[in-house]
Simulated assay, not measured.
Amino acid sequence: MRCSNEKIIEVKNVSMKFNLSKEKIDNLKEYIVKLVKRQLLFQEFYALKDVNFSVKKGEILGIIGLNGAGKSTLLKIIAGVLKPSEGVVNINGTVAPLIELGAGFDPNMTGRENIFLNGAILGYNQNFMEDKFDEIIEFSQLQEFIDVPLKNYSSGMKARLGFSIATLLNPDILIVDEVLSVGDFKFQRKCEERIKDMINSGTTVLFVSHSINKVESLCDRVVWLEKGKVKAIGNSIELCNKFKNYKE
């Protein structure tokens, strides 16, 4: 067994509430008037409700569920992108979230400039990024486009650059949300190989994919979410088979 008994992630009583507007507001003036008069009507919506589970160091945990079950919201909370409305998440290690690749990119800056910008956002200093620059370019295969403004990149090119930067180091925890579905087939294979290298080095992985077969083959356990609540937690093969035959 590759994982230890040490807990690296603990999700305790986590809920995420959003306020959804009940009415259509056509312009900013109308919104401000209603806000001042306290006439705005909202409906509470829980994307997650009282979610509890833990992850052991070195474990590969899949998160499954139908669209709208709360999978991506949960990953963003664990990554620190969102703060839960209720509950806490305890993390014991460094986290690399492969959720929205290149979310901090500036479209008017070149690929070269965005490498250093994104590196700074991830906490890497200038000297480190200079040392890793050639490695990033080689992996992303964007040599001919590195001095072109990012607004001229395709979505696949942006993803290639974002992935190459985000996986510079082996983190303690890797969060993967559909990142393997972007880019061309050859680059997807490169991404898979790099993630496998991280897994083999002992990195803990949280994995979400629309391909239930990938979850089944890659993960040790899965958390099954349904309408924001935990439906089941258990062996990946057993629960993935149940999920395939499940009708809500």
Score class of each variant (00 low, 15 high):
M1E: 08
N5L: 05
N5D: 13
E6R: 15
I8S: 06
V11C: 10
V14R: 10
F18D: 03
S21D: 05
E23S: 08
L28W: 09
K29N: 09
V33P: 00
V36N: 12
R38Q: 14
R38Y: 04
F45I: 07
Y46N: 13
D50L: 04
I64Y: 02
L66V: 11
N67T: 09
K71M: 04
I77N: 09
V81P: 06
G87R: 12
V88Q: 10
N92W: 08
I99Y: 10
G102V: 07
A103K: 01
D106S: 13
M109N: 06
M109I: 01
M109T: 03
E113T: 00
N114M: 03
L117W: 12
N118F: 11
N118V: 04
L122V: 11
Y124G: 11
D134L: 11
P149W: 10
L150R: 14
K151Q: 14
K151T: 01
N152K: 14
Y153I: 14
K158M: 14
L161R: 10
F163A: 06
F163N: 00
L169D: 01
P171C: 03
I173S: 00
I175T: 03
D177L: 11
E178I: 05
S181I: 06
V182W: 09
E193P: 00
I195D: 12
N200Y: 07
N200P: 01
V208G: 06
N213W: 05
E216M: 15
D220H: 14
D220G: 06
E226K: 14
K229N: 14
S236N: 12
K242M: 15
Y246R: 10
K247W: 09
